[in-house]
Amino acid sequence: MYHLNFAPKTFIEQYWQKKPLLIKNAFENFEDIITPDELAGLACEDSVSSRVVITKENDWQIIEGPFEDYDQFGDKNWQLLVQALNHWHPDSAGFINAFRFLPDWRFDDLMVSFATPGGGVGAHIDNYDVFIIQGEGERHWTVGDKGLYAPKNNDPTTPLIEGFEPIIDVVLEKGDLLYIPPGFPHQGQTLTTAMSYSMGFRAPSQQELFSEIADNLIDNATGLKRFTSQSEPTQASQVSTQHQQHMMALIAEFAACPNSYQAVLGKMLSQNRFELDLCEPEEEYSAEELDDYICQGALLYRIGGLKLLQLEGDCTSRVFINGEAFEYPEDIEENITQLTQRLSFDNQQAALLFQCSATKELILTLLNRGYFYFGE
């Protein structure tokens, strides 16, 4: 199991989304989650998002996967990046669980890097929170303060920047952790062949929220209330300040009603950016088969990366899963909470859930969707 060597409450109060933090030996006796050979094998798969970044003098080349051969890249100045390892590698579940002091809706993915000496990405700025955990090997990291930085080669579309003055300058070793909030420039360079793990946490932008709400209004033919006024400007060509404010008040009025936004938020925040590794059965399970599996001692698992979310104060009893709402009777609220909190259930825990017919029916649906699966 993976246990963080710091107090989450203190971290959230003093550092979360405020300033970078270096924690040496954040994971005592840290063991890599995956071997380089296993990672290279995953990057051969079409369904896995991967890329190789080649470091060149004052430039970088990105090659998108899948990959069949790595000999072409040589033995230095490149790194392999695999996104959403947690979707494809069940052994990463314990590592993910160590960061669940932050809400599941924020968690984006676990990216893994295998890097040769000299491999890395130039100075850049991300718009999300990231925890970088060092596995085998060593990487040199620098982090700068927030500020205005010139984009690399005057390209406004790139996250790369020309450079920065470091406020953190450190060589990460096995088990070390570096936290970087959005907006802080950083750069990593590999010193010895290394494995690194990046835990990314994202939040929606205004643009994304407005887009989701607008799509929902169109799809459901809602939000049809029109602007009305009690007075008009004296100039026909003028849009008065009062009219402008009252039009914007229509949006505020809509946004103030939970019925207007809760379903939108639940569906939006429970979706993943990366493909899920669904475990759909060859033939759909029946309720009787579920009982047989439990009698045989089966365990129940949630697939990697799947988000089960509930909205506090929701106007409907429902759980949001992969962009879809599943309603349930109020009397199984405790069981639903267990489903959302746990990533796996031992045989006894699963058997207790199945004793309730409504819970069993929902789990049957999730099993047939490939969202859950039985294991030994």
Rank of each mutant, 00 (worst) to 15 (best):
E284P: 02
Y285P: 00
S286D: 01
A287W: 00
E288Y: 05
E289L: 14
L290I: 09
L290H: 05
D291L: 06
D291I: 12
D291V: 13
Y293A: 04
C295A: 14
C295M: 13
G297E: 08
L299W: 13
L300V: 03
Y301F: 08
R302M: 00
R302Q: 08
R302E: 11
R302F: 01
I303H: 06
G305Y: 13
L306R: 02
L306C: 04
K307A: 02
L308I: 15
L309A: 11
Q310A: 08
Q310W: 07
E312K: 15
E312I: 14
C315R: 15
C315K: 15
T316I: 12
S317M: 15
R318G: 07
R318E: 09
V319Y: 07
V319C: 11
F320L: 04
N322D: 14
N322F: 07
G323S: 05
G323D: 04
G323H: 00
G323Q: 01
E324S: 10
E324G: 03
F326H: 07
F326L: 14
Y328S: 07
P329M: 12
P329H: 10
E330C: 08
D331Q: 08
I332C: 13
I332Q: 10
E333A: 09
E334C: 10
E334A: 14
N335M: 15
N335L: 11
N335P: 12
Q338W: 09
Q338N: 12
